[in-house]
Amino acid sequence: MFSPATRVYLPVIQTTRDPMPRSLITGCSSGFGQAIAARFLDEGWEVIATMRRPATEGLPASDRLRILPLDVTQPQSIAAALHEAGPIDALVNNAGVGMLNVLEGAEIDKVRELFDVNVLGTMSMTRAVLPAMRQRRAGVIVNISSSVTLRPLPALSIYSASKAAVNAFTESFALEAAGFGVRARLVLPGSAPETSFGKNAVARMGMDTPEAYGPFVQAYVQSLRNVTAKTSALNVAQAVWRAVTDPDAPMMLPAGADAEAMFRDTARSAA
């Protein structure tokens, strides 16, 4: 519950199986995933940090941390990871792929790969943990979306579409799950160029951008570099922590100064 006097979020999840709540976080090889894992460890949780190729680099040492291999696009990998992890109190669907490119320059195979990870991977993980949460009538699922869904932006049409799908899915799924004591929430990070996610999104642009779009795309990329209000991995970890532990948290939580500004602007426009 949230205490205004102390400004501290306390876990609200209660289980009979174990006094120590357990979270499973996907995409923990770098960036947001590592920061989220560190935050939950700091708060006394058991953390299952998953990634396609398990590695300890960047993750804090703790006897409450387990690292498991997981590819969210492979059903067998999901089943094996959840069997090894045991009961989950909170699932954080953080694994994702970025893409900075215009539609005409994007190879359709890369588009399919992006949707497979960002959308179907999120759905598959959610579907896999839901039966146990529903039976216990307790659990939280947090899906990492993006602030790019708050307003149209160039060279992000494909990525924005994938995250908009995550938004729509989560909002509707939350209505399905609420009657069983399971909550679903969205965290919308802003631009995080210092993280490997941001760098990889640019790298995926590669040489695919048609020459005709070159000046347009380069001008936009430069505008991103000039923005002073950005998002840090710690901003995202804080938003995820609130989404999990505050039962009154709104459906969408922006993470980072730029995301919060976009969220306020969108709210004013809708008013």
Rank of each mutant, 00 (worst) to 15 (best):
S191P: 11
G256I: 01
I158Y: 11
A237Y: 00
L120I: 15
R151L: 09
R134P: 02
D89I: 06
T73M: 06
A79P: 05
F115S: 13
G105E: 11
L224P: 02
D116Y: 08
R151Q: 13
S269C: 09
D109V: 14
L188R: 03
N226R: 15
A271Y: 13
P152V: 03
F173I: 12
R39E: 08
A81G: 12
S23I: 06
F216D: 02
I48C: 06
R53I: 10
E176V: 07
S191L: 15
F173Q: 15
D248V: 06
P54Y: 09
P154G: 10
L253V: 09
E176I: 04
A255E: 11
D89R: 04
A219F: 12
G190N: 11
M207H: 14
M20S: 12
A178H: 11
T149Q: 08
R39I: 00
T149V: 09
L130R: 01
S77P: 12
A239V: 11
G214R: 05
A192M: 09
P250T: 11
V102E: 14
V102C: 13
D18P: 07
Q14W: 11
P4G: 07
L59D: 08
E171N: 01
H83F: 13
V129Q: 03
A81V: 12
A38M: 06
S146P: 04
A80K: 14
S157L: 12
T16E: 14
R136F: 04
Y9L: 10
L65Y: 06
M125T: 01
G96Q: 06
R268H: 15
L103T: 15
C28H: 00
V240A: 02
I48E: 01
T56G: 11
A239N: 07
T149H: 07
A219M: 15
L150H: 05
A233F: 07
F180D: 06
R7Q: 13
R39S: 08
G96P: 02
K199N: 08
A168G: 15
L224W: 05
I13L: 08
S29C: 10
